[in-house]
Simulated assay, not measured.
Amino acid sequence: MSRYHEIKHRVATTFQRHVGNPILGRLPSQPILETTGRRSGLPRSTPIGGRRVGRSFWIVSEFGEKSQYVRNIQADPRVRLRLKGRWHTGTARLLPEDDARARLKTLPTVNSAAVRAIGTNLLTIRIDLDD
């Protein structure tokens, strides 16, 4: 990763951790992804943007395998997802072969624009919902 991308990643994740996520996590309509911490074993919640299509929920990670929630998924793909105030269980799958830029065109516009602007290593993730 270039020095520019490293700085961009550090600034974005610091902002998300201390400003964006605490605010977004309180909004009842905001989708929340809950993973299991790969080291702690504790639930880890992350506000995300994406779209449900049938029994799947699609998201694009702006930092790919550098994202903490992606690392948690790699360790344990079982997740919970809060959609419209209701929790669902599912299995997350990383899809590096998917065209993440094309996928963003099918997802909510504002979130997709932010992911494109901030992202340095886009990665598509599909969550197959149990219910």
Rank of each mutant, 00 (worst) to 15 (best):
P31G: 09
S45D: 07
Y69I: 10
N121P: 00
Q30L: 06
R44Q: 14
I73P: 11
I127S: 02
P43Y: 11
R80A: 06
I125R: 07
P77F: 08
S29N: 10
N111C: 00
V115M: 05
G64I: 11
S2M: 13
L129Q: 02
V19M: 06
P47E: 11
E65A: 10
H5S: 15
F63A: 09
T91K: 11
I7T: 15
V115G: 01
I59W: 05
R103L: 05
R17S: 07
S112I: 01
G49H: 12
V110P: 00
L27M: 14
P22N: 06
R44C: 08
K105Y: 02
L123A: 02
W58I: 12
D76M: 07
I127D: 01
G54N: 13
L129D: 01
A114R: 09
R101D: 05
Y69F: 15
I125W: 06
I32A: 03
A92W: 08
W87I: 03
Q30W: 06
L42A: 15
G64Y: 13
D128E: 10
P108G: 02
H88D: 00
K66W: 13
E34P: 08
D98I: 09
E62Y: 02
S29K: 11
L95D: 09
N111H: 07
F15P: 06
R39P: 00
I59T: 14
D130H: 05
D98S: 10
R82N: 00
Y4E: 13
L95V: 08
G50P: 03
P43Q: 13
T36C: 12
G119Y: 05
V11R: 14
E65H: 14
E65N: 09
T124F: 02
V115E: 02
V110G: 01
L81F: 06
T124G: 05
A12I: 12
R10T: 15
S45H: 13
G85Q: 01
D128N: 05
T36I: 13
K66C: 04
T13D: 11
D99Y: 09
Q16N: 13
T36A: 09
L129E: 01
L107N: 04
V11K: 12
A117H: 05
E97T: 09
S56T: 14
G54C: 13
Q30R: 12
D76E: 12
V11T: 15
G64R: 13
V79P: 02
W87G: 02
A92R: 10
R51L: 12
L27C: 08
H18G: 01
A113E: 04
H5T: 13
I118H: 01
D128W: 03
I73K: 11
I118E: 04
A12S: 15
